[in-house]
Design a protein around this nucleic acid. Structure first.
Lengths: 227, 227
DNA sequence: AATTTATGTTTCAAGTGTGAAACAAAATGA
DNA sequence: TCATTTTGTTTCACACTTGAAACATAAATT
């Protein structure tokens, strides 16, 4: 385990770099310099080098980075060389939608199980994924080697679901319930709050008078989100 | 239009406060002090007062805030007193899932139209929402008074879709395509990148050795996302 | 009228992230 | 061998957010 603390913004950028490399590989590029990478994908070359330098010396001075090699390094750094098994808790609209969301299947994340407390739903299937009783979470999670959980239940149940799954040993959780959750520090929680995002758009619409001229500078918080 | 620049983190917190007030209203509370609000919902009382003070004097010294009144103020500030009409571009899995996602219908956001370029899909319906040809976006958006667009198309088409909808006058866009997009400054773009979030979880799993003791301090970036 | 409560407002220190600049080191090519 | 390219690394200034502290102000209560 690396002891230096690496900012999440840094690791988010690693994801971006990996995507860029995928494009370059598809084009057959062999090497790329930080400068060219930055130019092409609207990034910052100094930051690319700094981000990568946290994890080792992957480049060759005078040459740049070997595309395939760097891709492998980033894949390893991000832990994407192994398959991750995902459980989705909540077999409602959002949960079932996420179950066959191409974004999961495309990458190294496989949805292995759905959970709900509705007896009508338990035992049914969404695509190939079976719906289990949330009471059996610990057992099923262990059996199916679940290492990532997605919370897609109504806000009022989210905290208790979170506690249940962390007690079962899950260390990585993505939360779609529009409520802040509290977790112990050895558990990683990512909350995706669509309500806040929508209301943020609404705020913008309410406070922008569309009279001012356009300009192309992207706004800074969006830049942070995007990179 | 307020001229002071208000941080997006501030407006995100306004959304949180609004949720808290909804709970309090449901319980029949009439007034609440910033201190009690903070204690109960794990917020910071000084920050609550500061955030609210950007927009006016809503509290009563010696009393606190009148719950219903503050709720109304926040609703207005966030522009949630009017209905917003949402168009979703991309009638794939994610797009159709979002279409009947309760999170949209519950609030003041109504999905008014779906768009796609697949002739098989055009003309069909998802729930009550009709799927239109993306070529007709400008026309339909004007007719149905669309003011928010959601991009749910594959990454490689996202930028061109974005340009099409901004040319039609849309000023608020939520992007689910896993790619950074460039917009003009008078357009608000929120990118929700589930891939980055997942890979961030993967990174955490790859770099945490689960040997260290637990502690309850929430990690700072999650706190920022949640509040 | 005096006390209490709690907001509105300002100020400040601490932490974090960004991006520019400078430069040594290493590899390539002429 | 020498010049060029580009990384790896350090340093610095700038900006932003947070949260604490201090205090005046206003309302309510005794």
């Amino acid at each position: 385990m690396k002891v230096e603390k690496i900012s999440e913004l840094t690791t988010n950028r690693l994801s971006i770099y990996l995507r860029c490399l995928n494009e370059l590989i598809a084009e057959g590029a062999k090497t790329i310099s930080s400068e060219k990478l930055a130019k092409r994908f609207h990034l910052n070359s100094a930051q690319i080098r700094k981000d990568l330098a946290y994890f080792g010396e992957f480049g060759v001075r005078g040459v740049g980075y070997y595309v395939g090699e760097l891709h492998n390094h980033l894949t390893k750094i991000l832990g994407l060389e192994k398959e991750h098994c995902v459980a989705i808790i909540g077999a409602g609209r959002l949960g079932t939608a996420l179950t066959d969301y191409y974004g999961f299947s495309q990458s190294n994340f496989t949805v292995a199980a759905l959970f709900d407390n509705d007896e009508e739903k338990i035992g049914q299937k969404v695509g190939n994924v079976k719906i289990f009783d949330i009471k059996d979470f610990a057992k099923v999670a262990k059996r199916d080697k679940i290492d990532v959980a997605v919370i897609a239940v109504p806000a009022q149940f989210a905290q208790s679901v979170l506690e249940k799954i962390t007690q079962a040993g899950i260390k990585a959780v993505m939360n779609f319930a529009p409520t802040p959750l509290r977790v112990e520090c050895d558990v990683k929680l990512k909350t995706v709050d669509l309500t806040i995002s929508l209301e943020s758009l609404s705020y913008f619409l309410a406070h922008s008078n569309n009279a001012n001229g356009k300009n192309l500078k992207p706004n800074s918080t969006e830049r942070r989100n995007a990179l």
